[in-house]
Design a binder for these strands. Structure first.
Length: 301
DNA sequence: AAAGTTGTCAACCGCGCTAAT
DNA sequence: AATTAGCGCGGTTGACAACTT
């Protein structure tokens, strides 16, 4: 039952820094046979390394096109914004961030954050680890504030994709959430009328809201928790670019499944199962786009 | 110039998710 | 359905470099 073990620990495997010869063996093997199947790779490639170590070496160092060091200002801004959005409690945070920064690895981003950015941001603003947009008068930054992800070419082949498809449990502290929570809608008619057109005066719903959130949570001072599901988006920036008002106008809609909100593609929309929750599981947020969250005045934790 | 401190980053570790059986 | 192990992830470590005293 189960798989065969990757490698036993008593095989006298090499550890520590990789030699040039080991790098060459690994590179040649991957170029010939492709990535994956890391379990069998060391033996086939003639390496005395654990498959896990080989994978790490390839992904973080040997893979073609990887940029090393010298994080640019644009990259830095993006890291900060994405970190603000995803917060500290999000699994797959670094891989998601790295997936949006061309030719950078999650390890690279993580190292840069831990060694440079975190210290600098704490120094700049001891009360918050996040960067406020007002604090940076750089024209480049201001441009980024207007269209923070427009500059990214989402179809670029140099974007490193990760397998991270969701970002669970982004926690927004109660203190920061309260000012932006609108009253929950009471029925579907408040958002979509008989012609399946949105009622513009009503707040839009932010999808991906966890079912765990209830109105009582707000009263009790609990944190707000969100589940981001990436399944319907090719890249993280696709999600960030979604204009929910546009989606509604195009007869796409937000549906509910298992008490979680989803943005449905146009083709799948409108049936008996497609509705906006009318109970206290979801809250209307007057956001035109989730992109706005990255520019929010509120701190994300 | 030497010693101490700080910064960088490759590599390791352990855990959770998920595919394989 | 249950079990097992591989994969992929974030956190951490430690070696080395750069800088400061």
């Amino acid at each position: 039952m189960g798989r065969n073990p990757c490698c036993s620990k008593d095989e006298g495997l090499n550890r520590g820094a990789w030699t040039a010869m080991e790098d060459k063996l690994l590179t040649d093997y991957v170029k010939t046979h492709g990535e994956g199947k890391w379990r069998n790779l060391p033996k086939s490639a003639g390496l005395k390394r654990c498959g896990k170590s080989c994978r790490l070496r390839w992904l973080n160092y040997l893979r073609p096109g990887i940029k090393r060091g010298n994080i640019t200002q644009d990259e830095e801004e993006l890291i900060i914004r994405l970190h603000n959005l995803l917060g500290n409690s999000c699994l797959y945070r670094w891989s998601l961030i790295a997936g949006r920064i061309p030719n950078r690895t999650d390890n690279d981003i993580k190292n840069y954050w831990n060694t440079t950015l975190r210290k600098r941001l704490q120094k700049d603003n001891p009360m918050s680890s996040n960067l406020k947009k007002e604090e940076n008068p750089n024209p480049k930054t201001q441009q980024l504030n207007q269209h923070p992800f427009k500059k990214m070419n989402t179809n670029s082949s140099c974007v490193i994709r990760t397998k991270a498809t969701r970002c669970s449990k982004v926690v927004i502290s109660q203190q920061q959430l309260k000012p932006i929570v609108a009253p929950p809608p009471t029925s579907v008619d408040h958002v979509i009328n008989d012609n399946n057109k949105p009622v513009e005066t009503e707040p839009l719903l932010l999808p991906f809201v966890s079912k765990e959130v209830h109105s009582d949570d707000l009263d009790l001072g609990l944190d707000f928790m969100m589940d981001f599901k990436m399944d319907d988006f090719n890249l993280f920036s696709d999600l960030l670019h979604v204009d929910f008002s546009q989606s509604l106008e195009n007869n796409s809609t937000i549906s509910s499944s298992d008490n979680k909100g989803y943005l449905c593609p146009k083709s799948d929309h409108i049936d008996d199962q497609t509705f906006l929750l009318s109970d206290d599981s979801l809250y209307g947020w007057d956001f035109q786009s989730i992109t706005n969250l990255t520019q929010s005045e509120f701190d994300w934790v």
